[in-house]
């Protein structure tokens, strides 16, 4: 156990000492209109991207995405950000995603991660989970959970990296 902990400590200190970053996986998902989209290519557009994992039953997810929807137009004008909402809904709940998106009048690109493959590759365990990505596909920051008002800080980050 001691040797294991020492190795973990070496590993984590090496992480801290190098400029490590997480990259967007090379994965193709379908959007709510059935069109296939490669998420890695989308995130290399030269503009900032936000990926937000959500589920139709997750109330904090809906609060977060509705809060951002209210200011999305302003964010796009100022930073050119592209927001991708990724649904982790499964089985028959997948059929409820487009109705929810239309009902909330979201203008996001909404992808369906029905097999939770993207979720696994991006190490997401619970929703809401949000990533801010720069124009070169590098993850700048990420949040697990939603605190009301967090979108204010998100906007500041977008202005910094645009």
């Amino acid at each position: 156990m001691k040797r294991l902990l020492i190795s973990l400590a070496i590993l984590l200190s090496l992480f801290g000492s190098q400029e490590l970053y997480a990259q967007i996986p090379n994965l193709t998902l379908r959007d709510i209109n059935g069109k296939s989209v490669n998420i890695q290519q989308l995130c290399n557009s030269g503009k900032p991207t936000i990926i937000s994992f959500f589920a139709t039953w997750c109330k904090p997810c809906l609060r977060e995405l509705n809060a951002i929807a209210d200011v999305y137009d302003d964010w796009q004008d100022a930073t050119g950000v592209n927001i991708i909402a990724v649904s982790i809904d499964r089985a028959q709940d997948v059929e409820k995603v487009k109705p929810l998106v239309d009902g909330n009048n979201w203008d996001y690109l909404v992808l369906l991660d029905t097999n939770n493959e993207l979720m696994r590759q991006m190490q997401v365990q619970a929703v809401p989970h949000l990533f801010v990505i720069d124009g070169k596909g590098k993850i700048i920051e990420q949040h697990n959970g939603y605190t009301d008002g967090e979108e204010t800080n998100l906007y500041k980050t977008l202005l910094r990296i645009k």
């Binding site: 190795s7 973990l8 070496i10 590993l11 992480f15 990259q23 991006m122 190490q123 993850i139």
Partner: peptide, 25 residues
């Protein structure tokens, strides 16, 4: 435990390659 230590150190060594990215939780 020795197996886990070896695997962790391999991950460690891989960070020295430029085109490798890491994530975790």
């Amino acid at each position: 435990k020795k197996c886990i230590i070896v695997i962790l150190l391999c991950f460690c060594a891989l960070t020295s390659f430029a085109d490798v990215s890491l994530n975790g939780g």
